[in-house]
Design a protein around this nucleic acid. Sequence first.
DNA 1: CTGAAAGCGCTTACAG
DNA 2: CTGAAAGCGCTTACAG
Lengths: 361, 361
Amino acid sequence: MSVRTIAEQAGVSISTVSRVLNNENSVKPETRERVIAVANELGYVATMGRRATTNLGFLYTGEPTIAHAYDAAVLGGVYRGTEEMGFDVILINLRRDKRPEETYTQFFMRKGVRGVIIRTMAEHRDVCRAIAAEGFPHVVISERFDDPKISFIDGESRADSTRAVNYLCSLGHRRIAFGVHNIPDRDHDDRLAGYEDALQANGLPIDEALIFRQPFTLAGGATIVQMALTTVDPPSAIYFADPMLAIGAIKKARSMGVRVPEDLSIIGFDDTDLRFGVEPTLTAVVQDASGLGFGAASWLTRRIINKSNDSLRRTVPTNFEICESTGPVGGGPRLATRSMSPAPRRPDAVGTGNQGKIATP
Amino acid sequence: MSVRTIAEQAGVSISTVSRVLNNENSVKPETRERVIAVANELGYVATMGRRATTNLGFLYTGEPTIAHAYDAAVLGGVYRGTEEMGFDVILINLRRDKRPEETYTQFFMRKGVRGVIIRTMAEHRDVCRAIAAEGFPHVVISERFDDPKISFIDGESRADSTRAVNYLCSLGHRRIAFGVHNIPDRDHDDRLAGYEDALQANGLPIDEALIFRQPFTLAGGATIVQMALTTVDPPSAIYFADPMLAIGAIKKARSMGVRVPEDLSIIGFDDTDLRFGVEPTLTAVVQDASGLGFGAASWLTRRIINKSNDSLRRTVPTNFEICESTGPVGGGPRLATRSMSPAPRRPDAVGTGNQGKIATP
DNA sequence: CTGAAAGCGCTTACAG
DNA sequence: CTGAAAGCGCTTACAG
């Protein structure tokens, strides 16, 4: 399948197809759109020499945050997911490299990319919509859309958030705070909704004074503990929708002489294995970030090879794990570690002889 | 610069060059070697359509460990380092994709890769040597070689390891253990050497019974603490050459009722910001893993563009940071947090609105 | 094992 | 704004 096929289908010459592929400004917009549509329909593949490229793009719509534990886990999963079909992963960044006048498809084809895993944020949902509208193969990670043309894979944390807060209620807690980062994010809104569901189910009021928003850093978590414990009617438990907040909170509580869980129960959220690195080990809602990346890549590479036009609309439940950072209100004895909804987790391969730093307790 | 140029220089036809590039087995070995040598000399570039590719390979010689904090930090740095010259980062894996009969250069050219950052381990030092011998642009991360043709960038942790152990001695510690992972690794050997240097300088014996080797996991660190504290003459301080070991050790000590630092001083090693996530904050030898990746990528992309033949032989000193996990032997008051050798650190960009999980206290 | 020539995929003046 | 044709980079039968 070459420029020639596209040219025939679109009713233009191969010169025009080439011009569109290279985004020359001389092409009439309607012609351009028709050619791009045909190229996406036929699954046009950029060639290297005369071989088809097999690059899968890991796309940041905004500033890349590769070094973060969540991103690293997702990327590790994406890499594993490309193995079966033999695709390579290439890191691409819209903000850095996309030219303003070119379409997404043109940008991707220029990079030799046949499909993209989109790592995005709430503010760039329109970018996901535009890529889907052009018909370019894609999967959005950790978002959810109503439009059936947009493919996504998303962790469903609302139910476990409710379960987590229900668990606190069952331990006798009545003043339960919620800590979340201070930037709008659908994931985190879900967790807030789950928290509110549980409060209502337990006949507890939703108190805005118990909802804290801070940057998702250790310092943010510390600030929340500080603020929460110095209010008039302080909470006896906090559910954090972010790992860093929870870890910072535990550190801060201990340095304030507040015992966890005797004086304060803490539930966190974990995408990796960070919950095992703190003392006490964190009771947490756990999301398999690596699994999200794996699922996205393995589905997308198949869709590309099969030239199907399916969408992926997959929601993966989280898991609620009870560890040591939660206990009865008022400081009873600790409960034994156990898991309420054990789900299979697929850890990334841990090589030998390297300096890997992942927690594998 | 095309197959034609290579053909002329190598004294063969373009057909033969093409055959070598595609590793057809009909080519005589000597001819093949000559063509590959010329291709590397001229800096041959695979083309996409008729544009030069600009891929920088992030190469795993063995099993990829992308999700690990160290790898993620390095990769984040590599990505930043490619921005100026506009290269893209592509993840490649020898074990998965390299055909047994092809040379490294052939493999890389087939992937459209113009240079590689090599993430390797001690057991694959010969792979680094072979890539360098072929003349393919490369930088090895966290290794060191005598051969001046091999480019590397490496953290120098021996001096700070000595400094760390000297510091323990200055606090009155006389029984100081060393914890390291149980797989041979030059990095970690350096740290052991630094430990031994300090013991000798302080007139202390090197006691094999105080050197513990365990898998680099939280569990490994816990095991070391357990073993160390149940010996006849237990140490009052431990220096760990790996972050996970140190964090696991702190957790274990606390759960055994051993106070850190009053009963046991712990010094760790940190590639990222994990030391801030534990209680007490870890005194540590700190390596800027992201900076290693950045340095490698920014040098390598320039070398490719300039078609120079220089080698990179860069050693980056670590930093020794005194935090809360160390104190006088016998449990005096804690010292204030300060840094003995503050070095500029370049944190990865932290985006907004994402679920990033890096510690930025 | 290798080259000359045909041919594929693409781009690029040139012409309109 | 578009096409026909020339041309570049590469691969691939074909011939030896």
